[in-house]
């Protein structure tokens, strides 16, 4: 391991980390509302909506994310949709994670005792108001720890974008390692940087879990 070259590598890796953060944040911003749309669709009483949504969710959950990325990047151009590698990676990651998030929120909603909904309805609340005022706040509270954990996974899985040539942190590492053969230093640095990015998010998850134990 060559400590003296750390100073040379770090700026390149930080440049890659910036892209990693962008991919994560944009994926988060897209996947969360999309996940909520899936939940609404899946829990919809009309079969012609809930059934196709269930199929989309289950198919996506059953595919390796890397295959989804390859599909979007390499196969979509055949049907006339050409995307840059950055766009393809963000869309692929956001899409896959939206289905995971949908399942987190759905299980959160289903974990709320039906009596809560009935109590709200028996007070004269409409379906929407009962969901908004009573069920969803509680479901959100239950879902928050696994949701924040998903954020950690999203950050780490953004490394998959390197496979379709997005120069995020892992890809930057690969490039440096290939030209210097200093694998140990480079990949140790990459690992440490991922950890530094993940630790605050993991602390957040931990905090949300404790809050849930203490809170009502």
């Amino acid at each position: 391991m060559d400590w003296s070259s750390i100073g040379t590598y770090v700026p390149f890796l930080l440049k890659g980390a910036e892209t990693t953060i962008y991919i994560t944040l944009i994926s988060l911003v897209i996947s969360t509302p999309l996940g909520l749309v899936w939940v609404a669709g899946k829990m919809c009483p009309w079969k012609f909506i809930s059934w196709p949504v269930s199929v989309i969710i289950n198919v996506t959950r059953g595919l390796p994310m890397i295959v989804v990325l390859f599909y979007i990047y390499f196969v979509f151009p055949d049907i006339g949709i050409t995307l840059s590698s950055f766009q393809a990676s963000v869309i692929g990651i956001a899409f896959c994670f939206s289905t995971y998030i949908a399942e987190i929120f759905r299980s959160g909603i289903e974990s709320i005792d039906r009596g809560q909904f009935e109590a709200a309805r028996s007070m004269g609340m409409s379906f929407g108001k009962a969901m908004r005022r009573v069920v969803l706040p509680q479901a959100f509270h239950v879902s928050l720890p696994p949701y924040s954990n998903t954020l950690v996974m999203m950050l780490k899985d953004s490394a998959l974008a390197s496979t379709i040539a997005v120069t995020e942190m892992t890809r930057q590492g690969q490039l440096i390692a290939a030209s210097t053969f200093d694998n140990t230093t480079v990949y140790t640095l990459v690992a440490v940087l991922y950890l530094v990015l993940c630790l605050p998010l993991m602390a957040l998850t931990k905090r949300l879990e404790t809050r849930r134990l203490k809170g009502a």
Binding site: Q116, E118, A119, M123, G124, M125, R133, Q138, A216
Partner: peptide
């Protein structure tokens, strides 16, 4: 909904809203 407002219901398992305080439950 109008009708339910005029006919209250008390449940076996109380079904208070756990995310709201006692007073907020009553004011809801």
């Amino acid at each position: 909904n109008d009708l339910r407002r005029q006919i209250g219901m008390v449940f076996q398992r109380f079904n208070l809203f756990p995310h709201r305080s006692v007073l907020e439950n009553v004011m809801e």
